[in-house]
Computed example of a mutant assay.
Amino acid sequence: MRSPRIFALLTVLASTALLTPPAQAVTTAQTSAATTYRGEGDRLLRVRATAKPGIVKITHDGEGYFSVWSLNPSGKEDDLLANQVGPYKGTAAFNTGASNRTAAFSIKADGAWTLQVLPLTKARSWSITSRGTGDDVLRLSSTSRGLRSLKVRHSGDGYFSVWTLDANGRIHNLVASKVGTYAGTVSLPPGTRYASVKANGAWSIVRR
């Protein structure tokens, strides 16, 4: 006959096993890095307030004006993440300023859209020669050092800019800024880890 003490111990262990979720479910919840939102037309999309820099992959299939702003907890516009008439596909960085804190995204659209929010570390790898069309964010494998240069080109007719960001994802330097086509060689500022590209046409960046 089992003693009352052993019986009580077995009861507690059985209860614990029933209450503990499967290990696979816990891992899945903890390792999910992306959050995707979908909608159509204008929307105020509230998110958990954060000051941590990140990226947003954005699409829009409408024909009219489309824009996405990040808003701070006071409802003030912080970062203009997308700004285009017609279909849009691009990636933008947010919370790159030291005082930025995002609590919502304000979307103006006449068609269906998607927003995928990810950590800044999920930005596209910045190879020796990187090419793209439209807005994008690039990530170096390590912070830049020494005297390096960037050969930059843009073939669009709208506004084009390249901002470098430091290892913490904060604004570092504006290395290119022009409306229309652009071709130039500029310095890659030491301490650069990311680059935020705004463009409405094809572009290329070659590191040297």
Rank of each mutant, 00 (worst) to 15 (best):
M1F: 11
R2I: 13
P4K: 06
R5F: 09
R5Q: 13
I6Y: 03
F7Y: 06
L9F: 14
T11C: 12
L13K: 07
L13C: 14
A14I: 09
A14T: 10
S15V: 15
S15H: 06
T16N: 05
T16M: 11
A17W: 12
A17T: 10
L18W: 08
T20M: 08
A23C: 02
A23N: 05
V26F: 01
T27W: 09
T27V: 11
T27A: 12
T28L: 14
Q30A: 11
A33V: 14
T35R: 05
T36N: 05
T36F: 01
T36Y: 03
G39P: 05
G39K: 03
D42H: 09
D42K: 12
L44N: 13
L44T: 15
A49D: 13
T50E: 10
T50Q: 12
A51G: 12
P53W: 01
P53M: 10
G54M: 06
I55L: 04
K57G: 08
T59R: 03
H60D: 06
E63K: 15
E63Q: 13
E63S: 15
E63V: 13
Y65E: 11
F66V: 13
S67E: 10
V68Q: 10
W69R: 06
G75K: 05
K76W: 03
N83Q: 12
N83F: 15
G86A: 07
G86Y: 06
G86P: 09
K89P: 02
G90W: 01
A92E: 04
F94M: 08
N95K: 01
N95I: 09
T96P: 01
G97A: 12
A98I: 11
A98T: 13
S99Q: 13
N100T: 13
A104S: 11
F105V: 01
F105S: 02
S106A: 13
S106V: 07
A109W: 10
A109Y: 12
A112T: 15
L115H: 08
Q116E: 15
V117M: 10
V117S: 04
L118P: 06
L120K: 01
K122T: 03
S127P: 00
I128M: 04
T129N: 02
S130E: 08
R131E: 03
G132K: 00
G132L: 00
G132S: 02
T133Q: 08
T133K: 15
G134P: 07
G134D: 02
D135R: 07
D136P: 01
V137T: 09
L138P: 00
L138F: 00
L138G: 04
R145G: 09
R145A: 15
G146M: 07
R148I: 00
R148E: 05
R148F: 01
L150F: 09
V152H: 00
V152F: 02
D157L: 05
G158W: 05
G158M: 09
Y159F: 15
S161R: 14
V162T: 09
T164E: 03
T164R: 00
T164D: 06
L165V: 05
D166S: 08
N168R: 13
R170E: 04
I171D: 13
H172M: 07
H172L: 15
L174S: 09
V175Y: 08
V179H: 09
T181F: 08
Y182L: 12
A183I: 10
L188T: 07
L188N: 00
P189M: 04
P189A: 07
P190W: 00
G191T: 12
T192S: 14
R193Q: 14
Y194G: 05
K198G: 03
A199Y: 00
N200Y: 06
N200A: 03
A202N: 04
A202H: 02
R207A: 00
